[in-house]
Structure formats: structure tokens, C-alpha cells
């Protein structure tokens, strides 16, 4: 049904003389995270060849602050004329649960899912542990001794590691850092024993053999890391992995014909070979879901997150 409507809408946009051509000026893509960060870089790589597919350029605008709340709030409140598209991220799944904001994905017109990232547990290359098994055995024998650095309270990586601890009765000493870069330098400098980050965030260091990735919290192995076992394969499976995600969304009430144009345009950008190649190089796992699939994924995510947040004392 949805596909039919989309097709219908597309026909209307193409044939309807009454409709002005959309888009007739450059689009804006709001990114709720700061310039130069992982999310920003992906956004910029995605829209690099926008002109080829949608006829206009897409300008990336960083609206930062409040763990993404400010930027995503701006997307929600943007003028619903289709010229403002937003990049939404994992935080949106936690805001309401953590009491940061009442905003959820239901406040947006979802466009598509872009990627899912899985959490990786890594240790320094010269660490005494070479598998998740070793680590868990040690941590069980010495509760609270293993220091586990993560990128911030309530971030997917923190919750993934916390879920592991909860499911298998392991007590870690969690040390929150402010973002991926400080966490990596703390691991390299030996200030923490173990780091929970996105698997793509440690690709370079892994390739350079400065760190070892013990396991990844996903259902399947990551194509760029064929040697890294999943939690389940390593013997410590979880019911449902907590995945970081990024996707595209619009404010509510954008005319359906414009939504259709954008849906198609961004899908093409998403399939652009340059973008694909870039993502492969940085180890980013691209996962496409259309708006319906995206919505289902997000609904499911909330159910997975609530118990972990409660157990870590972050649920409000």
C-alpha cells in the first residue's frame, strides 16, 4: 500500500503542472552533533554527491548541544516544507527514558535508517586477556577490579557493556568519558583496562595492532572484522543486542509528494558507490530500512533499552 502511494505521489509530482518542482533550492540537513565527529562525517559523505541524485545540493548544518536534544528538537520544529531534513541518532531512543526530553521518534516523519553500529569490547594489544572468556573469568574472580571505559552515560556502548554485566553477573568499574576519542586515548595510555566503543571507532587501532577487540555485541560478525566473535559465539550471549543507529527524518506534516521525492533521493545517495566505499573503509555497517521498517526497529529498541537503563540507574 505504502509503495503504491509513493508511486502515486511520484507520478503526481512529475505530471502535476500545478505542483512547483521540488526541490527548487538547496536542502538543509541538520546534524545534532558537532562538526568533525563520526555522525557529522557520515552526513557529509552521504550528501557529497547529492546534486547528482536530487538536483540540488544538501548543506550540512550542525546544531549541537544537550546530547543531541537541541538539534533533534530543531528538526522536529523545522518548517515542514521538505527543505529541512534531519539526521537522528541513538539518543532519541533514550531521551524520554532518561528524563532528558519528552521527544521520541513518534514526533518525526521517519525517512529511512542509515546504519547500525555494534558495540565492541577492546583491550590494549599487550593485555593479559585475549578472549572474552578470559576477561569474564578474571572479572568474576575480582569483582569491581576491571575498569571499563565508555563514551558517556546512556550511550549505546555503555548500555551494551552494562547489559553484558547484568546478564552474566560480572561487576565492572564503569568509567564514563566524554566521547570516543578520549576513551580511545585512555585505553592506549593504559588508564583503563577495557573500552566499550563502536566497533568502527576502533578499526584503525585494531588494524595497527595496538588494541585487540575481544568481542562484538551483534547477531552476526561484522564483515570488516571477520575474526572478531560475537558475544554469543564467545559464550556470553544476550537476548537482543543494543545497537547504535543513525537515520534520516523530517518534521511531521511535510506534504506526501515531497516526502516521496526525498525518500527516493536519499535512497539513491545512500546507494552511491563513493558513499558505500567510504563506509567500507571506515568500517561502518550500512543497514537500510524504509520508514516502516525503521519505525518497527525503533519501537523494538525502546523495549530492549528500558530494562538495561533501569538496572544502571539511568531510568527516570
Amino acid at each position: 500500500m505504502k509503495k503504491f502511494l509513493v508511486a502515486l505521489a511520484t507520478v503526481f509530482t512529475l505530471s502535476g503542472a500545478a505542483h512547483a518542482a521540488f526541490p527548487e533550492k538547496d536542502l538543509t540537513l541538520i546534524v545534532p552533533w558537532s562538526a568533525g565527529g563520526g555522525t557529522d562525517t557520515i552526513a557529509r559523505a552521504l550528501v557529497k554527491n547529492a546534486k547528482k541524485y536530487i538536483g540540488v545540493n544538501v548543506n550540512v548544518v550542525n546544531k549541537t548541544g544537550g546530547q543531541g536534544v537541541v538539534g533533534m528538537g530543531a528538526i522536529k520544529l523545522a518548517r515542514p516544507d521538505g527543505y529541512t531534513v534531519g539526521l537522528i541518532t541513538f539518543g532519541l531512543s533514550t531521551y524520554k527514558l532518561m528524563g532528558l526530553s519528552d521527544m521520541t521518534f513518534r514526533d518525526f516523519e521517519l525517512l529511512q535508517l542509515l546504519n547500525q553500529s555494534a558495540a565492541a569490547l577492546s583491550v590494549k594489544a599487550d593485555s593479559e586477556w585475549s578472549s572474552l572468556e578470559d576477561l569474564v573469568q578474571y572479572a568474576k574472580a575480582n569483582p569491581g577490579k576491571v575498569t571499563l571505559g565508555h563514551t558517556g552515560a546512556g550511550v549505546a556502548w555503555h548500555l551494551s557493556a552494562a547489559a553484558l554485566g547484568l546478564a552474566h553477573g560480572v561487576e565492572f568499574n564503569f568509567i564514563p568519558f566524554d566521547g570516543g576519542a578520549p576513551t580511545r586515548s585512555a585505553l592506549l595510555g593504559g588508564h583503563i583496562d577495557l573500552a566499550a566503543t563502536g566497533i568502527d571507532e576502533v578499526k584503525q587501532l585494531n588494524d595497527a595492532e595496538q588494541i585487540k577487540i575481544l568481542a562484538v555485541n551483534a547477531d552476526e560478525r561484522h564483515p570488516s572484522f571477520p575474526d572478531v566473535p560475537t558475544f554469543t559465539e564467545a559464550g556470553y550471549g544476550l537476548d537482543a543486542p543494543i545497537l547504535d543507529w543513525r537515520g534520516l527524518a523530517l518534521p511531521k506534516n511535510v506534504p506526501a509528494d515531497r516526502v516521496a521525492v526525498l525518500e527516493e533521493g536519499f535512497k539513491k545517495m545512500f546507494e552511491d558507490p563513493d558513499f558505500r566505499q567510504y563506509c567500507e573503509e571506515v568500517g561502518l555497517m550500512l543497514v537500510y530500512e524504509d520508514s516502516e521498517g525503521f519505525e518497527e526497529f525503533l519501537t523494538n529498541m525502546e523495549n530492549v533499552l528500558a530494562p538495561t537503563l533501569e538496572a544502571t540507574g539511568l531510568l527516570r
Partner: peptide, 8 residues
């Protein structure tokens, strides 16, 4: 929400 990110 604007204060959530702190004073810029």
C-alpha cells in the same frame, strides 16, 4: 532543552 547542553 537549550540549557541541557550547558552554556555554550
Amino acid at each position: 532543552d537549550n540549557l541541557l547542553g550547558g552554556i555554550t
